[in-house]
């Protein structure tokens, strides 16, 4: 399978009135056709910044790429001008945002909001676009596409609005899809329906997809590969099966244990969840060595003095840790 996207050594700097610091450091990842790569991490880990960098939507001039490259179809997006990016965004790179209520225009019917994308990028006339949009609505499992086309966003449920967002992202048949917390704002039964549709679409269309989420359970049920982010860096990257079976970075292990889950439940509650002590450090005040060291039970002097780089611990499994957790036998 060929890579649709290759990010190489991406570093992004943020400069505010008070300080200047890196929000992303040395990010490298690839996404192949037909693959869902999950970027998982807690708030401030850099997962959304990575997506913004790929889309060329970094807040200008506060944030800027200082080194590295983002290759998409032979173009380095990190250095592409705004005209080039405008032709790609919404056309060859589709985006699904978290909040369907605030991402849709409340004063405009939903159909034309999808048609707009086709008129802009594909030069379709309004009536041609309408037929295409109805087809896309059917594809994303919106029942009764013909009448739904004329709904306003407030006339739809949260789940249906999120389907409209997915329709906008897929309208131009993009090569790369970026979904930023696509189910976080939804109820659990609606989330289950949307995830099911995303899986079906993946099987039918085989788009290269980047799924951004904080929820490891969503990762488990959706992604082929996972990159775990912490404080602006990728700390572990491998296949989904491998990550859940033998997580090696202490942060990943901590995250997995912190989820209250069925098997680990002693029935009547009252047990303790495994917590990761402390909190995520401020990006402008990172420790000299490993950023996770102050919260890590395995940390040694080496971890405080020097930062581990992301290396292959076995084929297809990369970890940035001096003392990775042993693989279970």
């Amino acid at each position: 399978m060929s890579n649709v996207l290759a990010v190489e050594g991406l570093t992004v700097n943020l400069t505010t009135q008070d300080r200047s610091f890196d929000v992303l450091s040395d990010i490298s990842l690839t996404v192949a056709q037909g693959e869902i790569l999950a970027l998982v991490g807690e708030s401030g880990s850099g997962k959304s910044m990575t997506a913004l960098s790929i889309m060329g939507l970094l807040p200008d001039p506060v944030a800027a790429v200082t080194s590295g490259a983002i290759y998409f179809d032979g173009i380095d997006l990190a250095r592409a001008d705004e005209t080039t990016m405008r032709k790609l965004r919404g056309n060859r790179i589709g985006l699904i945002f978290q909040e369907p209520m605030t991402s849709l225009n409340p004063t405009m019917r939903v159909g034309p909001q999808v048609a707009e994308v086709l008129e802009l990028h594909k030069g379709l006339k309004a009536h041609e676009a309408r037929a295409r949009v109805e087809g896309i609505f059917a594809l994303v499992r919106i029942p009764d596409p013909k009448s739904r086309y004329d709904n306003y966003p407030h006339q739809m449920s949260g789940g249906m609005r999120q389907r409209v967002m997915i329709a906008i992202a897929l309208a131009c048949d993009p090569d790369l899809l970026i979904a930023d917390e696509p189910t976080t704002a939804l109820d659990v039964t609606t989330q289950s329906q949307i995830l099911d549709t995303l899986r079906d679409l993946q099987a039918e269309l085989g788009k290269a997809t980047i799924l951004i989420t904080h929820d490891l359970a969503v990762v488990a049920e959706t992604a082929n590969r996972v990159a775990v982010m912490y404080a602006g860096r990728i700390v572990e990257q491998t296949s989904t099966e491998q990550l859940f079976a033998t997580p090696r970075h202490p942060y990943t292990v901590g995250l997995l244990h912190a989820i209250p889950r069925d098997e680990a439940m002693p029935g009547e509650g009252r047990g303790r969840l495994v917590e990761i002590p402390g909190s995520v450090p401020a990006l402008w005040n990172l420790p000299k060595g490993c950023a996770f060291a102050p919260r890590c039970s395995r940390a040694t002097q080496q971890c405080q003095d020097s930062r581990p780089s992301l290396v292959d611990i076995q084929p297809g499994h990369q970890v940035a840790c001096w003392h990775p957790v042993e693989a279970e036998i």
Binding site: G159, V188, D196, A220, E221, T240, E241, F244, L256, I259
Partner: peptide, 21 residues
Amino acid sequence: ALPKPNPARRLSKKRVPRGEI
């Protein structure tokens, strides 16, 4: 409907809730 941290479920067919609230 609750997603579980178990990748084996990705490939299995799930019971998906019908309709909406």
